[in-house]
Structure formats: C-alpha cells, structure tokens
Design a protein around this nucleic acid. Sequence first.
DNA 1: AAATATTTTTAGACTAGGCTAAAAATATTT
DNA 2: AAATATTTTTAGCCTAGTCTAAAAATATTT
Lengths: 223, 223
Amino acid sequence: MAAKTISQAEENYLKAIFKINEKNGKSAGNKAISQAMQTSAASVTDMLRRLAKKKLINYESHKGATLTDTGNRIATNLIRKHRLWEVFLVDKLQFAWDEVHPIAEELEHIKSEKLVARLDEFLGTPKFDPHGDPIPDADGNFTFRQQVLLSEVEIGKKGMLVGVQEHSKSFLQYLDSLELGLGTEVEILERFAYDDSMRLLINAKKEVVLSHKVNQNLFIKLV
Amino acid sequence: MAAKTISQAEENYLKAIFKINEKNGKSAGNKAISQAMQTSAASVTDMLRRLAKKKLINYESHKGATLTDTGNRIATNLIRKHRLWEVFLVDKLQFAWDEVHPIAEELEHIKSEKLVARLDEFLGTPKFDPHGDPIPDADGNFTFRQQVLLSEVEIGKKGMLVGVQEHSKSFLQYLDSLELGLGTEVEILERFAYDDSMRLLINAKKEVVLSHKVNQNLFIKLV
DNA sequence: AAATATTTTTAGACTAGGCTAAAAATATTT
DNA sequence: AAATATTTTTAGCCTAGTCTAAAAATATTT
Ligand SMILES: [Mn+2]
Ligand SMILES: [Mn+2]
Ligand SMILES: [Mn+2]
Ligand SMILES: [Mn+2]
C-alpha cells in the first residue's frame, strides 16, 4: 500500500530532516533544513507542504517538521543504502573514505529492495560504514556502539578510533596524513589546558598533537 | 570545456536516439523516439530542440535527429555503464538475466568516471553483458563478434548461443524454461518449411523445437 | 494529381522544484 | 514592554519535462 512515487529531491529532504531531528532531538526548522539542503527558505516551505500532503512528515506552519512512521522508514532505508554503497566502494572498488560520499549520495536513490538485500549479503552484512557510522538493518534498527569523543577522554586512557563526526574531504584527508584511520590505537599522553589540544601515541609507535577541533570529531572506543 | 550538466531525461533520449540511428541506419524520427521513450510526440519535439541547443544532436524540423560527436560519446558511455552494471548484478549479486535491465536503467546515470573505471576492472573488463551485447571500452569502441541469427543457419550446422535480440522478461524466461542460456551449444537438426520453425539439439543431449519468432531473436556463433 | 493517411509541430496547460524580495510571525535584547 | 533580530511564509517568477488537441507538413494511395 501507499506506493506513491517519491522523487530524489523528496528523498534527500527526508534524510536531512531525519538527521536534524536526530541531532537536535526536536522538530527540524526551516533554517536548518535549508542549510542542510543548500536551498532557499522559500523552497523548503514548499517542499515541507508537499511532504506533509504525502504524509511523510508532520508539519505545522512555523513549527518545523518531524517524520511520520512512513517518512522515518524511507529515511532510514536511504541511510542504509547510502552506507552499504559506501562500503561497496571502499571494500570492493578500493575507493578512499574521503571520495565515497558524493557517489553514495546518488547510489542511495536506486530503487530495488532486492538490490539492497543482495548488496548487503555480498558485502557480508557490514554493521558500520567506512566512516564508522552504523548501518541500519532491513528493519531499520541501528547497532549502537559504546563510544566517546576523543576530547572527553582522560589522560592515560587507551582506546581505538572507531568513527568520525565530520565527514568533510579535508578533515578525512588530514587524518590520512597523520595515518589516523579507523582501527588506529590511541593513548592519551597529555592534554594542554591552554587550547585543549592533546598529545597522543598512535599505534604504540608515533606521537601526534591534535587540536580541540579535531578531538571533538573523533569517536573512540575505550579498551 | 563543454561541461554542461545533462539530466537523466536527456541521457535517456540520447540513448534512444543512438539505438534508433544504429538500427535504422538513418536519422531518428519523432515517432520512433516517442515510441522508444513512451512519451508524446509533442514532448519529443520539445526535447529535440533542447538537445539541439546543447549541441548534443543534429536536428532540423521534420528531418529527425542524429547524434553529434559529443552526443555520441555520452550515449556510448551510457551503454557502457548500463552493460557493466548488468554484469555486476548477474556475476556478483546473482541476479537473473531477465531482472537486471530496469535496475541498470537507473544505475547507468550515476556520474563518476572513476566509478566506471573501477567497476570495469573489478568485473575483469568484460566484453559482453549478460544478454551477449558488446560493452564499449572507455574510448567508445565496441567489440564486434561474428554471429548470425539462428533463423539463418542451415541444417546440420553447429554453433553456440551468444546473444539475444529481444530483451523482454517473457522471452528471457521462456529461454530459461528451455535451458537455453548464453553458451548453450546448438545443432540444427531440421527446419519445417511450413512455419520456419526448427528442431535443434542443445548441449548434445536435449531436443527442442523453436518457432521462427524465437529463431529470429537468437544470435549464434558457428563452430 | 488528388485524396487520404501519417508524422511532426504548435499552442496552451500542468506539476515539480527551484529562485528573489517582501511581509508576517516568532525570538531575543535592551 | 518595546525595540530589534531572526525565522518563516507569501507572492510572483522561472525552467524542465510532461500532456492534449489542433494545425501544418510530409508520405502514401488511389
Ligand atoms: Mn542523495
Ligand atoms: Mn558514511
Ligand atoms: Mn536510464
Ligand atoms: Mn543488456
């Protein structure tokens, strides 16, 4: 039932609303959506009305948007597809983690339940994508992992880099230049109170100093 | 450089024009395009004007369309991508040859030179797709294979099924039901003048009788 | 060569998805 | 509580891509 067609533009908005809802824990306002989508506020108002008419979001004038169950299911499935394709690109086609996002942004819109199921199986049912983000299963359930931001870790603790919060090419390439990839072991050696930068030992052999901005974008699993 | 953006709709028209040009050996008329694209004649006229303005086709009122070099390059690359994705779906994800077309129809529009190159490599640079159609290389060159329609083969000859002309689900499933896949060996045992049907020995063990309509849609490579 | 049939274009309309500029509503400061 | 700032909606416009119905051009028959 309810097999209305849904356009790529609509799908992208749903995904943006999902992420804003998730991050802020409340309804997504026009401003936040227009920033995420890089469109004008007027366009957002139009689209919110369209999505509301299709029962994909709950929307009232001046009160922002939240996803309905249908909208949530669609958004979650998009995230699932996006992340599975990213795994495909990295694991099977040897792309780097800083190159895959824009391609997955297109691939996530391919319509075929069977394709997603087969791809998932082909990839060995991965639970996390190349950036450490969880891949929801076919029912939309995310795997949660116990993790903390590096900036919150105390001196002397050890852990492993398991995810990044920033996904920009420049950030990812900076991490590459430091040989900081997912799975890297880190030990906190020192924290400089002046600017909250930290000195770390990585993979038990190299020392680096990371700025607070960087530390706030790295997820660590403590050992 | 001519890095104009090109929409999926435009791409699909270019591909349709390419195929009509190729099959008929002359410029593609409005009627043929509207049938291929399942759109109205009026829509075709509009689109031909748009494509002509972008220098992707040569078009004069009432004289049909042919592709410019740019248009040809784009169409050929779409066919390359379409067929590579079909190989991926069949070889890597175990799809059947009658299921892949509509999915490849979407996948062919993903924009990434690097993706196509990596996919091609990942698949082992295949020269033919699951229907036996040649896959053009990165420069747009097709591999030609010496082949004949089964309907043209003489009694007593032997050969191998290497391609299909029809791509409909029902035709492909009919072939499956006869266990006639690409690579099947066939020997012509008898031809019935009454309706041009033929009796064949397949894989040196089973006999089948195929109608003229079927024979006209199977490509055979003689041994 | 006319008459008839077919193909193609024109005219006018519609939806999706975008924009800018201005008005209205809501939030934040003073 | 006013004043000011920010966010959201409205109004009006635009392009891409589709449609139907009618007119014009071209092709085929008679
Ligand atoms: Mn997308
Ligand atoms: Mn990712
Ligand atoms: Mn297509
Ligand atoms: Mn094919």
